[in-house]
Write a protein that binds this DNA or RNA. Sequence first.
RNA 1: GCGGGUGUGGCGGAAUUGGUAGACGCGGCGGCCUCAAAAGCCGUUGUCCGCAAGGACAUGCCGGUUCGAGUCCGGCCACCCGCACCA
Length: 861
Amino acid sequence: MSAAAPGGYDARANEARWQALWEERGTFAVSVDPDKPKYYVLEMFPYPSGRIHMGHVRNYTMGDVVARYKRARGFNVLHPMGWDAFGLPAENAATEQGVHPALWTYENIAAMRGQLKLMGLSIDWTREIATCHPGYYRHQQEMLLDFYESGLLYRRNGWVNWDPVEQTVLANEQVIDGRGWRSGAPVERRELPQWFLRITDFAEPLRAALDGLARWPDRVRTMQRNWIGRSEGLRMRFDIVGRGDPLEVFTTRHDTIFGASFLAVSPDHPLTAALAETDSGLAAFVEACRRSGTSEAALETADKLGYPTGLAARHPFDAERRLPIHVANFVLMEYGTGAIFGCPAHDQRDLDFARKYGLPVLPVVVPEGTDPAAFEIGDEAWLGAGRLANSDFLDGLSVEEAKRDVARRMEAAGSGRIEVNFRLRDWGISRQRYWGCPIPIVHCPSCGTVPVPRSGLPVLLPEDVDFAAGGNPLDRHEAWRRVDCPSCGGPAERETSTLDTFVDSSWYFVRFCSPRATCSAEPGEAAYWLPVDQYIGGVEHAILHLLYARFFTRAMRGSGRLDIDEPFSGLFTQGMVCHETYRSREGEWLTPAEIETGPGNRPRRRSTGEEVVVGRSEKMSKSRKNVVDPEDIMDIYGADTARWFMLSDSPPERDLEWTEAGIAGAWRFVNRMWRLMTDPERALALPDAPMPAEAAVRPDLLSVRRALHKTILGVTGDLESFRFNRSVARIHEMVNLLGEFAARDAAACWVRREACEGVIRLAGPMVPHLAEALWEHVGGDGLLADAPWPEACPALAVDEVVTVAVQVAGRTRGRIELPRDAGRAEAEAAALALPTVRAAIGGRQIRRVVFVPNRIVNVVA
RNA sequence: GCGGGUGUGGCGGAAUUGGUAGACGCGGCGGCCUCAAAAGCCGUUGUCCGCAAGGACAUGCCGGUUCGAGUCCGGCCACCCGCACCA
């Protein structure tokens, strides 16, 4: 089915024609050209789920507008596409449908490639890559060997979410209310050997460089800064009564040391483990903590629980004072030293804990001007500034002074030092799954972990695998798993974990520079194309993907593979595509296609006629069924209409509400523009006709030309700053004006041509097929895709007559037409001549007249 | 709790960065065309008062600065997003 084509515009046939022509001519294939400035536009590559969704359409439309615009501006534009092709859904398909993950994935890629091609994107398809292809992941394995050699890749025990039914590790987001998302079984915390990348080595550079990313949204930079979470504090040692080993804690509030009333260690702390051997109550407590899971949700709802160890520590500045040591579930082993000192008066968490277990609460920081004796802590800890009290030699100091003094004394005594801690933790990259990049490591009983020699790469995934038994099929694939040790030649085993798919997407933008190179990146190509000038994608990747890619870029530089620090010099995060939701009276979700508009504009169910409940607009999702299939839309209206709608109305960083009326409006515009410019009644001058002298003087012609040149200036500025909705509005205005413009003589026909050509070129990046057809129709030179961006004539882009508002005491009372840049005297005279202005002034004395040239005359009486 | 964002007609949103609030689109209303419909075209459309000219009120709420505030400052409210036992 396709929409009616009034005026003879057949969107689908036209789009197919130009797509074929672009492809045949290799219009968008690029190569290094040292004489041309380069521009690398990249949209986040898709996961090959099988069908594109509206979010993709929005994302790739924006990227395509940028790519085509920059191309018209004379840049050598790299605009590639690929597939984030490893991941769990392929394995689920294997279990559920019995289809091999590779087959499933490649079929999905073929289907989605076809859909993307329908959009008419200016992509260099010769550079297409898929991360599941050995030609891609072998380089990733090489990099892992680099990282292993430099110590960036290491193995240690790490805590994971373990699903006992699925026999697999789950990501945090796959744990829902403490249960596995598929099995529904309670998830356990398990300590397993895991591979990690030492991203924490780069914590400070990654944080510091955020300041230099000027073309990134502040929001994303802030989120990354918080995620990295730098804090400066004191690492200090406490002696434990009756034990040789001291206990180390990390604190940022060492000024409050005299308010300390306990020490707390993590259930995962070595001290806890040692004590639990002889204390069965403690062992049970630790067990209970582990069962509660590692998900953020579980931690949030968990009560503050403690277990007294019976041990006590000595206060560092008061030999007589003893601080009881507890094991507490809220102390994280992964941060600081896994142990804290608790100062209940000045930390809410410590206060809650102290109240629960009857520990002393002694305020030591008192707000300025408050009597320390009268200052009491209720249910809320005092986190503000103040003067030290009840603190011996610190009394009277400010918080900052006290911190410095304590740090100095502890350092002098050799029992403490200033330390910077980061919230960021090393990146655990092992996944106990099949459909991922194999980790090129062998475990040998005599040599330990041994890297696969580079000559043995790539380590390929075996194809004959069985998914029926659950767990990781690589574990059960004896022929694949058993190998000779590369070092001693004895029997050994392959690492059966595969890589987190975030690794795959951490360097794909590099691979696009030289997708078939025999090394990760051909240096000349990478030096020319990188960094990515404009990266576009969803804000959901603001932290993980973007941080990992930044880390990888630095790590690759460290192993000599790249010569840049930052991968993306510009970033744009687009909003989501939303739609109203519908439910039947029984509460069943209904798709928009099942809904029709009944009498009185009431939505009802098409099949039964029953009224439906309309819910608020939400992100399109399968679970809410509020999805509209892009291919259906392109079938009916064509890609240009879908693209135009995606760019209209909503600013690109905000959510877009998909509506039937909106897409229909875009369709109307596409047809209107076609009709207007192909109407045989509206004549155009010949393409190469010289400008008639009248075009520079006749007011009716000048007003059209002024509007055109203002539009060129405006749209150019809008595209540069991602205000696509604004540029859509400007093109609408110009087309409306063109519709009213009756060209009845030769000079007017010349102006009409100038205007039509200008509008076609401006609309080209947004509705490329329509524009290409119109370009042909008006006899433009070659393909529009190769035509330069229109130039605005600065003299024509300003009005010669301006409307100036006349205010009395700041309230607008009238308007006057004045020549541009008219002087104060002229403006004042014209303003005071207005009857409405005189009436508003009444008989009052004029005290002053504010005059802003070309804008305002404000009479203050 | 911490961090960030948003709030303008019936709706999506404009507003030259302190200078004519509501561009453009959607929707509504009226008309033309048609046997009729679709498409298209023309007009109109913030609210209230008024026949009109015009006036009053309007950018979440309260206050401030200014000749002039959607825009700047102070204080609230609502909603959205991210992070969250980080010591």
